[in-house]
Computed example of a mutant assay.
Amino acid sequence: MVKKLLFYKIIILTIIFSIFYFISRGGRLKLRYLFLIRYWKILYSFFSGVVLTLKVKDMNKLNVKLNTKFSPFYRGFAFEGAGLGIAILAFSLEKGKSFEEMTKQLSKKSIYQYYVGLGWFLWFLYGRKKGKYELWLKQIDLRHGIILFDGVGFSSCFKLYKSNPQVINNFKNFNNNQQRVCYQGFGRSLWFISRFDIIYVNKEIEKVDLQFQEDVYSGVGIAVAYSWFDRIEQAFMLLDKVPEEFKGPFCQGMAFGYEARRLQDEALWNKHIKAINKSTRQTILKWLFVLKHTEITVANEKEKDNFYLEWVDLLRENIYIKRFNSKKN
């Protein structure tokens, strides 16, 4: 009995020592510790959002549950999971039409996350059967519906890419625009696959078809900004490690990530934006100003079904000029 207690004490002390060791060490070890903690909290929030949605079903009650059960930082991941849960519920009703009705009733603050969650569901359900996706696309918002392919790209690669990099070839079953958004989702997943290692990310993107590399960097930028919203200045340091020709797409993705954060929770937004240095804060605010301006410009000039990618491309050009004008000239 005494030996058993002594054994357990040694195990506990070893675990405590290991935790403090990882915290105290700089560089990769500290980053891996951050990743492990954040990774599991994100997964818990996402799948809890799915379960709660299937359990509660009433969107008004679900809104209350999601806003009270999850901390502000991880709440957005729960709403993304709710998008997947709503997709499951909508499947047995009027599919895309029901999906739109329920998401609008739940909250308009997480519109992008809902379509990502829908993409998760459709990939699990249909895989590479392109025609099945078209049935949903005809019933959902034309401007944002294509974002579901971000969820397809993320969910199809998240667990399989490391053991089978050829999994990205599944994207070839979709048209060019849909593939672009799939690669954006792949970029988001790559940030987590790499365990927040931008050097690994750069090396993997080099293997991707050149025409889609910008879209992958866009996805990485979204993931960095969103998952490191409490580490904004560290996120900006990553820009020095992104190849010059891809800084525009990376910054465009970061702008999307920050805009998603701003829309979801104004109090959390103000807390973190006010805590950073003036130069970085001004850059982000300029990005969001340009983001809004380009959104309005594209909305007035383009057909609805081309809206999202036209907006992405125009924002990339303008953000690169705004942030890196001195380097480009």
Rank of each mutant, 00 (worst) to 15 (best):
Q166S: 15
L314F: 03
I276Y: 09
L6N: 10
L190I: 06
E94C: 00
F47I: 10
G119H: 13
K304G: 08
L137F: 12
S156H: 01
F70Y: 14
S194Y: 09
C182R: 07
T103I: 13
C182W: 10
Y258C: 04
V208R: 00
T103V: 14
D197H: 10
I11P: 09
Y226Q: 06
I296M: 11
Y161S: 05
K274T: 10
A299C: 04
G85P: 11
M1L: 13
N173H: 08
F47T: 09
L291S: 11
R262H: 08
N300I: 12
L52S: 05
S45K: 07
W269I: 04
R261L: 07
K97W: 00
V201Q: 05
E101K: 15
I321G: 01
T294S: 12
F192N: 11
F171I: 03
Y21Q: 07
S279K: 14
Y21T: 12
K271H: 07
S156G: 05
L36P: 00
Q178R: 12
Y114S: 14
V312P: 00
F79D: 09
F124R: 15
F47M: 02
W269D: 08
F154L: 14
S92P: 00
R32Q: 08
L13S: 14
G153W: 08
G127S: 04
A78R: 09
G49I: 11
I284C: 11
R231I: 00
D305H: 12
N177F: 06
N277I: 14
L285H: 05
L43W: 03
F236L: 13
L135M: 04
D215E: 15
N325F: 13
E101P: 02
K65R: 06
L210E: 09
I19M: 08
F289C: 02
I321D: 02
K104D: 12
L89K: 08
F196H: 10
E244H: 11
L291F: 15
F250R: 05
K241D: 04
E303W: 04
R323N: 14
E317L: 14
K108M: 11
L62S: 03
F158I: 15
F212M: 14
G119R: 07
I12K: 11
W136M: 07
I319D: 04
I42D: 00
I222Y: 10
K9H: 06
Y200F: 15
Q178V: 05
I273D: 07
V201R: 04
F236Q: 03
K278M: 09
L239I: 14
K129S: 13
K327T: 06
G27H: 06
M59G: 01
K203D: 14
E101C: 03
Y226S: 09
P165I: 10
S45A: 15
F70D: 07
G76R: 08
Y44A: 08
F20W: 08
Q179M: 15
N60A: 05
S279P: 01
R323E: 10
K3M: 13
N202K: 11
V51M: 02
Q234H: 08
F174M: 06
Y217P: 00
F99D: 05
K41G: 01
Y183D: 01
I193D: 02
K130G: 04
D197Y: 05
S218F: 00
Q139G: 02
F7S: 10
L118M: 14
